[in-house]
Design a protein around this nucleic acid. Structure first.
Lengths: 245, 245
DNA sequence: TTAAATTTGTTCGTATGTATC
DNA sequence: TGATACATACGAACAAATTTA
């Protein structure tokens, strides 16, 4: 607690930013490790010699960074993170990729519908816009934690019943195999990062403002014909990617 | 402006969240396209029938998402984004990778020092901890926009003068070539995402709370000996990655 | 060039609601 | 049930940066 002294007013740097920095440092020093929580807002306000709102601004910034999580009625918890490592290669498969790192893997079908391909989906799948495609919404959990929320499109002609098959197995690889596709390859993966939107926050059990790693990927059959285009959102504090060349 | 009516107090959803959603929708509808800015906070507060602080909370959330950027004295600008695409492969090279997409590329040396390898750096470079390494801090710009901030380590025995050479050419590839390494390969790339810290916010000219894509990568010479370990931070709203398998 | 008006940024005060213990 | 602690909202004042007159 040695560092939680009064804050001097410095020109140019807002009080709440200075306080956020001090709390961040105190956390990384392990000052609050016994309790696993930050002291109550009013206590911090007293120690820093500022109003409680100023402390709240600082804690809100740290919550945005994912360092702490405020829980109404209890206090502000310090968040500890361990990331799953998700390998990306020509033979990327979700279940195999994370399998080693988790005891319990679940693939949950949220919905499955046939719809006409919009221009973007058509482009990725090398189809005419308007061609029927199956849209499959899925959520994956590892050891009970949601690790990805994906939206995948398949040509409907070839993979009409993939929703039902995936619902049973929870694995795209197995579902494709059941529909006669024994093997497939990853052709393109795009990776970007954004803030989570409302729907994903709910599905992935995130705090508002959480960061998502987003992949846009195409899988093809062995002759190079696109069979799947998927947009997958991974909580950035739970997942990282590895590309082994 | 049709949607900017009074907000009803609904149980369960905070006012500022409802307002953030309404402003986000109005922006994506293009309601403010003529000016490129959101109306002043006091105007919004009046239209929504709430206090200015409530509007500020909503705008702060949108700023976190990177949708808007507030500028003191001017107003709150709507941010338009276009991302550079950075390909990652066995032959990843920064300059070649982004070269097509930008007219003007700059590689700036921030500092270059020789230091003993800490355990992590030593592990990635397959050296004994404490072995001298060159640490090179660099900033890269494309068309005047900062696109990456990297910290790279090289075995000092082999690449002692790389700082000076990089300072002249602005290219790691050229610097390595000048030191006798004609070709090299990317062996591992790890990708994660976090919030930017203070130092990177300044160097990359970001707004606080911006998201960074972070790569940890190892390059080796043609016989597989590690020659470079680099941690590179890319602003997520300016860069995305592509892995072509 | 200067001054005023506009607009966002920060801080404090106060009150009330809601969840946890 | 009451105490504690975070969540939301309103009000007021002033600072700082920018634009406009």
């Amino acid at each position: 607690m040695t560092d939680l002294k009064r804050v001097e007013r410095r020109a140019g740097v807002a009080l709440w930013r200075q306080i956020a920095d001090r709390i961040r440092e105190a956390i990384s020093r392990g000052d609050f490790d016994e309790s696993g929580m930050v002291p109550p807002e009013l206590v911090l306000a007293g120690q820093f010699g500022v109003n409680r709102h100023t402390v709240r601004s600082a804690l809100a910034a740290l919550a945005q960074e994912g360092i702490v999580q405020a829980v109404q009625g209890r206090g502000t918890l310090i968040v500890r993170k361990e990331r799953f490592n998700f390998p990306i290669s020509r033979r990327t498969r979700f279940t195999e990729g994370i399998g080693d790192q988790a005891r319990d893997l679940q693939g949950l079908l949220l919905s499955s519908e046939i719809e006409p391909a919009d221009p973007e989906v058509a482009r990725w799948l090398a189809l005419e816009a308007g061609t029927p495609v199956v849209r499959l919404e899925a959520l994956r959990k590892a050891d009970g934690r949601a690790v990805s929320r994906s939206t995948a499109w398949f040509p409907a002609e070839r993979f009409k019943g993939i929703g039902e098959v995936f619902a049973r197995s929870g694995s795209i690889t197995e579902a494709l195999a059941a529909l006669g596709l024994g093997d497939y390859l990853r052709s393109v993966t795009e990776i970007s990062a954004t803030h989570a939107e409302t729907a994903d926050i709910a599905a992935l059990e995130l705090t508002p403002g959480a960061i998502l790693l987003v992949t846009r990927a195409v899988n093809t059959d062995l002759s190079g014909v696109p069979i799947q285009y998927a947009v997958t959102r991974f909580p950035a504090d739970r997942v990282q990617f590895t590309i082994a060349s």
